[in-house]
Design a protein around this nucleic acid. Structure first.
Lengths: 359, 359
DNA sequence: CTGAAAGCGCTAACAA
DNA sequence: TTGTTAGCGCTTTCAG
């Protein structure tokens, strides 16, 4: 049972393959009537284009993906980009072409880069909308011209983007709470250190954390505005004033000053600290027991998945999920060395382990 | 800067494209001398075959993967197969063909199925060696005839298989130990319930668990031989005799009888239980707090990864890692609903979350 | 608006 | 042993 091609459709419709091509691709130079007739036949026969043949014919990859993500902060967006690249490297020999237009940092120059990509001609666009409001018109325009937009890491929920690949902030906060609750005596005092409550992601994490902590435990919230010095000072002061604090949840990637404050107060290993994400400088704090666990947002996996969703949609017509929530990983001493972020410092035997992508 | 093709090589070598094809593919009907000359040129020019053209020409997918995995136990091998299928579905439209020859259960009839696959003509083979000793000669033969063999879930370390995709048993055991240690008062008594210490995987998990528990805590080991009744009776008896047991690690997927025993003794939520893997019937025990956490081996991700490694190697020549250790997931109440195993019971809003693959 | 025909890079069947 | 040639299924250009 052979698959059907343009030739067969042409015969059935009593036209030439050229006309079928015009109908299938919405090209001009064909009456609406014949187009509908051909489309109907193609539909009925379950026509599936042969991608290999198409690639060969057009002389370029049959699917082109544009990518616009920030270069900084390296800790976080580095792995995100690596994930995207890893996935596209596999795919490109199979006929997928990727175009990069990185921005310097989150939110800078996004719109311009994005427009460049659209003008270069792409079938889908992967991007981190740092300034969702500003980007929404561009996103909507892209979607209207048939370019599927997939947000990654941060979302632009007001736009008409096709999909968003993110870790679920509520789950992160709730996990931190569950780990602390189970670990500390009931009614222990805990605190959460966050960046800015104005940032959606930070607010949701903190909120979920508070909800997850048993009602008897008081929760102090420290807003450090992503500033190193401020974070250190505030946490140091907090730990001095409130000697009964037993647990700490750092909901932002900016955990180093917090850890320094904990150590400076001589509380390393005495109070349970849960951090966010993972980078090599954190390794030492795991070893010394300063960090009990980290809730890892898996930027690498996010990159891989975004790329896969895009290609899978274009090639196979798989519907894009409105949003795709990743499971955060829980990093502890026992599994630390299996994370790619620790590859450099890892022992040689475990260094070969290279778990990446999803689930 | 256009990529070079058989045509160009033919010209440079002063031969015809047909001859180049013969040289490139080790076909017969060509002198060793001209073959070497052509190969040298191809190498020097960095020749990369156009997969699309090849697929079009041969009329079938240019890469064929054979898969031989068990149907039972559904709980575990179901997701494994789904992972393999999910990945191949994406790839097949890009020119990857997958052949299935499932066995009824782990170890049954593997060799026969495998030989069938090899005879059908494949480029790589994905299988779960239930009986590694018996399968080793077949694996070696496959590798010798140029078929890359990738073990998944279980390994055949004595064979010459190219790669093995597994969760790291030591990490599973150590994680369980770390979670229990952090959670229980020092010197608490704990026990591990396992299948058979003769099984490599169970032994390694138990051993790692014991090592991870602080030296002051006594560790009792219960061997239940994967038998439901035996597991229930032994655990029930243990909990009766030793009222000071505070933590339990179930290192096998056979956790239901253990949980029943815990509940029967009225200890649900009183002692901390850590289980292995995940299936829908466990959901209730999470809700009631009987299970504190589960160390999940992610069969779905294993399937996806095995398939990706295979295709990536054949298509892009990416070297296969001797072994690929997956990070187990830690399942807790907070993230339970994000697991695909819980999709049926999950609330509609979270049901769309579909985190899968790797890292 | 539509049809005819020429490739895209590779393989395979047939000639030499 | 080697060269020649006819496609694979699709797009695209050029005629009609």
């Amino acid at each position: 049972m052979k698959r059907i091609g343009v030739r067969e459709i042409a015969n059935l419709a009593g036209v030439s393959p050229g006309t079928v091509d015009r109908a299938l691709h919405g090209r001009k130079g064909i009456t609406e009537e014949t187009r509908q007739r051909i489309l109907a036949i193609a539909e009925r026969m379950g026509y599936q284009p042969d991608l290999a043949a198409r690639a060969l014919s057009v002389g370029r990859a049959p699917v082109r993906i544009g990518v616009c993500i920030p270069r900084e902060i390296r800790h976080y967006f580095g792995p995100l980009q690596e994930g995207i690249e890893a996935e596209s490297r596999r795919l490109e020999r199979l006929g997928v072409q990727v175009q990069y237009r990185p921005t310097e940092r989150l939110g800078s120059d996004e719109a311009a880069r994005t427009v460049e990509l659209l003008e270069a001609g792409i079938d889908a666009l992967i991007l981190t909308p740092g300034d969702p409001a500003a980007l929404t018109p561009v996103i909507n325009q892209a979607e209207e011209s048939g370019v599927r937009v997939i947000c990654v890491d941060t979302d632009a929920p007001e736009s008409r983007r096709s999909s968003a690949v993110c870790v679920n902030a509520e789950v992160c906060g709730a996990l931190a709470a569950e780990l602390l609750s189970a670990t500390l005596p009931p009614e222990s005092e805990v605190a959460v250190v966050t960046g800015m409550m104005a940032i959606e992601d930070h607010r949701r994490k903190s909120e979920a954390f508070r909800k997850g902590i048993s009602k008897d435990s008081p929760v102090t919230i420290v807003e450090a505005h992503e500033d190193e010095e401020e974070a250190f000072q505030k946490v140091f002061a907090l730990l001095s004033e409130r000697s009964d604090i037993a647990g700490l949840y750092v909901g932002t990637v900016n955990c180093l000053p917090v850890l320094r404050a904990v150590c400076a107060r001589g509380l390393s290993g005495k109070i349970r600290v849960i951090t966010t994400d993972l980078f090599d400088a954190m390794a030492g704090y795991f070893d010394r027991g300063t960090i009990f666990a980290s809730i890892h947002g898996r930027p690498f996996a996010q990159g891989e998945i975004a790329m896969r969703l895009a290609v899978d949609h274009i090639v196979n017509g798989t519907p894009l999920p409105r949003s795709y929530d990743l499971l955060p990983h829980i990093v502890m001493r026992s599994n630390l060395l299996l994370f790619r972020e620790m590859r450099k410092t890892a022992a040689p035997t475990l260094a070969q382990a290279l778990d990446t992508g999803e689930e």
